[in-house]
């Protein structure tokens, strides 16, 4: 049988479906007055340690919640459980050897287990990966990137998508600076090349450096979100 080909114009964004779900998540967060941080990093940048210290310091000032999406291990959730904050773990699809990011639908699946109206700030710990999470909005107010100085200076140039999408960069493991061959000025130059003037806080979970500053950043943002509501 003779067949002919026809062309059909589609013009549909590959991420449109995800973006629509992210928007719906965002609306839920806004209605509940919950400020949402999407926390991203490469594996081993010290996200969970920072999160532990944040919960430790902030739990009497701010009602925090955690949505844990790091597939590497359930250890993260276990480490955080002792703080008795609302915490839900989203297991990303194990197909193809594990997902490399959270998408809006995965986050949505975890929301019924979180009492959003009792959470001032929700921290979403994304999968440790410098490429994939950047593409997928989940309904967050801000993207905070944890970057360890052990990763070298040039990552902003190699992973511009991620660095460009960050609203704040926590330059972490600063206690190791004197032991490393890491050129901080050069790193900051690359960072500014990709995301000019992006906010940055120098942190160390070990010495406590920068944690006050980071915690007040979070507190101020959450308070502002509540005031707008």
């Amino acid at each position: 049988m003779h067949r002919t080909a026809v062309k059909k114009v589609v013009l549909e964004g590959v991420l449109d479906a995800n973006d629509a779900l992210a928007q719906a998540n965002r609306q839920k967060f806004d209605e509940a007055g919950t400020y949402v941080v999407n926390m991203m990093s490469s594996p081993g940048a010290g996200k969970t340690s920072l999160l532990e210290h944040t919960l430790e310091r902030m739990r009497r000032k701010l009602r925090l919640g955690v949505l844990e999406g790091d597939v590497q291990t359930t250890l993260d959730a276990d480490r955080l459980a002792r703080f008795h904050v609302p915490l839900v773990q989203v297991n990303t699809d194990p197909g193809f050897g594990g997902e490399c990011h959270l998408d809006a639908n995965m986050v949505r699946s975890g929301l019924p287990e979180l009492p959003l109206s009792e959470i001032d700030a929700l921290i979403i710990e994304n999968v440790g990966n410098l490429v994939c999470p950047a593409e997928f909005k989940v309904g967050e107010d801000a993207r905070v990137m944890v970057y360890a100085i052990t990763e070298g200076e040039d990552k902003p140039l190699k992973y511009p998508l991620m660095f460009r999408s960050a609203d704040l960069v926590l330059v972490n493991k600063m206690d190791l600076l004197e032991h490393l061959d890491f050129d901080l000025e050069q790193f900051l130059g690359y960072l500014d090349a990709v995301n000019p003037g992006v906010g940055r806080i120098f942190t160390s979970a070990r010495t406590g450096r920068g944690l006050d500053e980071w915690c007040s950043w979070l507190e101020n943002r959450a308070a502002r979100a509540r005031a707008v509501q």
């Binding site: 049988m1 067949r3 026809v6 062309k7 059909k8 114009v9 589609v10 013009l11 964004g13 590959v14």
Partner: peptide
């Protein structure tokens, strides 16, 4: 990042 168009097979 979008699907611009498709080419489809159509019966005569």
């Amino acid at each position: 990042l979008y699907v611009e168009s498709l080419e489809l097979e159509e019966h005569p």
